[in-house]
Write a protein that binds this DNA or RNA. Structure first.
Lengths: 272, 272
DNA sequence: CACAACCGCGTACGACGTACCCATTAGGAG
DNA sequence: CTCCTAATGGGTACGTCGTACGCGGTTGTG
């Protein structure tokens, strides 16, 4: 097996046995890269910049990571670990999926640059694997694995699609250095031209309606999520809607502490 | 208003009045860029490469487009024009949304690089505006504009999320130059190690189940789409399920020509 | 007909990822 | 212990990118 024939980054051993002690580590490099990407975007996390962040020479990073792309894979998996799915098949599937959805969304909002990396086939890093186990475990007792995959794809698509929009509008405001109202004022000439043309009645309707108070982003997300969960409910056997204690007892012994589902560990702040 | 103060690319006039006749055009440049991106990916569509494609000098492009980012915006809107939504509020909302979904998915599959551009706030190019009018017009008679936005966000999220997965797996196979079975053979050591560890029962289930014949990608998409449409149906008033002719007659007088709005001044060609 | 606006485009600059090389370090064999 | 050798940190250099700047030629307008 030649040097570059590892199937993915997780198969490549971090450290050989011989030679001098490495001064850094993959985890340390990944952490620094995430820190930079959070603060200045993924494109700012260049090899030179990351190396400077940890006090290393630029080329030293390549002793730990074969390429920048692979480093980004490490960063992505590192992020998956932030989603709290402990004790996840709790027996209340709606609560579980809601907690997962909130956690995933919050993670994306903390690390918006994740939207710009397109995973080339899930690389199945350790954190992602754990997430899969916990998340798919939620509906595993109710539906076939294929059905489960389909439903989770739907759920994930909703979450990612929604949060992508949040991210891109936030990014646009930051890029222009304008507040939301300033930005709207700036684009007024264009919007006004479109409205005045009379050719876009529905666009006009959206623009007009947007002036009246909308739901907060959090509430919008929750509202749509409820719809998705209702949609999932229709795909489950009727027994799934009732309490799951019977199923749980059948699968594993559990005490009656009454802790059906833990509160989401962190709630995204209702902005402004 | 200084030179760079245009709110977006659509406000910046393509041609001033004075001076010599330009040898090229935005449309021509955009077309060339799309052609390159289709064949070799968006990152291959560099300014130099695009210029060479149309026989121009590299810097000449900047007479037509302020920056590469803006050119990508033009490319994205050009793609929106490929989605056929003519006569779109037809009265059968399920058929309309299905046609839109198929069209959007097919467009993404023809131009997979679109997944790598994150729109910074919808830039509302002409083709996108038309698409909004037609698509949101489908449910406009049934629900409020806010509800409509929410439902369409859900639909679009599903489509984009699903097709993103198709794209990234296709890309991985192309990147590695392996067929799907070769790729699976290559990653066998890693997958086998995970399965053998016994720590990932659901991942194991997925891997095992994947050996038996699955639905085609088309059927998977259609299947999930039906679920989404069912979900949308529950948000509509009960009258919506029946034929819509009554509603259409009630809202606007219409002759039989089917030409509701003026034709867009330029239709992008359906490639190949 | 002169002038200013606009054209195409050549040159140049400061980034980027990373191939290559080198002196230095440290585990394992004798 | 001493060597051998693999592995280290990192400097230099190459080919790429987007694009700022400025030039000589072209053209509509006064």
């Amino acid at each position: 097996m030649t040097d570059a024939e590892y199937v993915n980054i997780w198969m490549r051993p971090e450290r050989p046995a011989r030679g001098p002690k490495p001064a850094y580590s993959r985890a340390q490099i990944t952490e620094a890269a995430v820190r930079i990407a959070d603060a200045e975007g993924l494109e700012a996390a260049t090899m030179r910049r990351i190396a400077a962040e940890i006090g290393a020479g630029a080329m030293s990073l390549y002793r730990y990571v074969p390429s920048r792309d692979n480093l980004v894979e490490l960063m992505a998996d590192r992020l998956m670990g932030e989603i709290d799915v402990t004790g996840m098949p709790s027996g209340d599937w709606r609560a579980d999926l809601t907690r997962y959805a909130d956690g995933l969304r919050a993670m994306w909002l903390r690390h918006p640059w994740i939207a710009t990396v397109q995973r080339s086939l899930p690389s199945f890093g350790p954190n992602q694997l754990l997430l899969i186990e916990r998340l798919m475990g939620v509906l595993d007792v109710f539906v076939s694995i294929d059905e489960n995959l389909s439903l989770m794809a739907m759920l994930n698509s909703y979450i990612e699609g929604t949060v992508r929009e949040e991210i891109s509008s936030a990014k646009e405001f930051r890029r222009s250095g304008l507040s939301e109202s300033e930005w709207m004022a700036r684009s007024y000439p264009y919007v006004d031209r479109l409205v005045k043309s009379g050719e876009y009645p529905i666009f006009t309707k959206i623009v007009m309606e947007a002036r009246q108070p909308h739901l907060s982003r959090d509430d919008q997300f929750r509202y749509g999520l409820q719809r998705i969960l209702d949609c999932i409910a229709t795909a489950l056997p009727s027994t799934a809607e009732s309490l799951m204690s019977a199923h749980r007892e059948g699968r594993e012994e559990q005490d009656g502490s009454g802790q059906t589902h833990s509160q989401p560990s962190e709630r995204s702040s209702r902005a402004k």
